[in-house]
């Protein structure tokens, strides 16, 4: 990729188009709230948001802002802060199409995408309403051992994935620590956009202690430096979830008007600070 991959957040967000299949990680893995804010500023609509394997605040604000047409996830949860209000409201109003899944089904479908396979089998699922509601999931008889029913899931190959990581180097190699879900996202997706906390002067692949926890630059299409880019969500080794901000979000977003006020503030605040 090289140094040309370094851009500003708005330039990254401009690569997320209306109607695209956008993949994001779970809240604890490194969510790029910084790129999310730019995506919302750009006015993107009709996203098919696929979560590996769940989401929280990021899905909430994207749904609340009306940017999501289809949501594919195993859960939307704000954990102990309470139910996700705009997600629940959109479900009640029927304004988003739901593709409810289970965590291992999303992992498996991303792994199929990573390997260039058309589909992948998965245990479990049979007899659930998850499977019954998914026209794209099938059940076959095991061709190697008949009398063994097994589910098949089509591969997921997102148009673009977006996340936040602790560190990258000038060449665009991205350090992810133990958050291997980010590597899966990068390899399964056609494009990968990353915001990072800091930039390393050293090439990360030359340090054997870290090289195994690096996404090589060949999988990365665009980077931006955005310290605090995951906030108010946690980033391992950097900061915890900001409990005060999360609680404030939940109470404000219990109404549509409250959410709109939050959103206006959040979008404009970032602009001032940027």
């Amino acid at each position: 990729m090289g140094q040309a991959g370094w851009q500003d957040l708005a330039a990254l967000a401009a690569q997320v188009h209306s109607g695209c299949l956008l993949a994001v990680p779970k809240d604890s893995s490194g969510v790029s709230m910084a790129i999310t804010r730019e995506i919302l500023r750009s006015g993107v609509r009709d996203l098919h948001l696929v979560c590996l394997p769940t989401s929280g605040l990021q899905a909430e604000v994207l749904i609340g802002a009306g940017a999501v047409r289809t949501l594919e996830t195993s859960a939307v949860s704000l954990g102990e802060f309470g139910p996700a209000p705009r997600f629940a409201a959109a479900v009640r109003a029927g304004t988003i199409r739901l593709l409810d899944a289970t965590c291992p089904a999303l992992y498996a479908a991303f792994q199929a995408g990573q390997k260039g396979l058309p589909f992948i089998p998965l245990r479990g699922l049979i007899g659930s309403d998850l499977l019954r509601m998914r026209a794209d999931w099938k059940v076959i008889d095991n061709p190697f051992a008949p009398g063994d029913a097994i589910a098949l899931l089509p591969a997921i190959r997102p148009d673009v994935c977006v996340f936040h990581a602790p560190l990258a180097d000038a060449e665009g190699n991205v350090f992810i620590g133990r958050e291997r879900d980010l590597l899966l996202l990068a390899q399964a997706s056609r494009r990968c956009l990353v915001s990072v906390e800091a930039v390393s002067k050293e090439n990360l692949l030359r340090d054997p202690a870290r090289a195994g926890s690096v996404i090589p630059a060949i999988y990365v299409n665009g980077l931006a430096r955005a310290p605090g880019g995951a906030q108010p969500l946690e980033l391992e080794g950097h900061h915890e979830t900001d409990a005060a901000q999360m609680s404030a979000y939940v109470s404000r977003s219990s109404t549509e008007a409250g959410f709109r006020a939050f959103l206006d503030e959040w979008l404009s605040l970032g602009k001032v600070a940027a």
Binding site: S77, V91, T102, G124
Partner: peptide
């Protein structure tokens, strides 16, 4: 997932997480 008629459940919970696999 929630109570009422899916997908427009009147009460929506987070979702199924890993249950549809681990339970088996």
């Amino acid at each position: 997932v929630g109570t009422g008629n899916y997908p427009r459940t009147s009460v929506r919970w987070p979702g199924s997480f890993g249950s549809a696999y681990l339970y088996f």
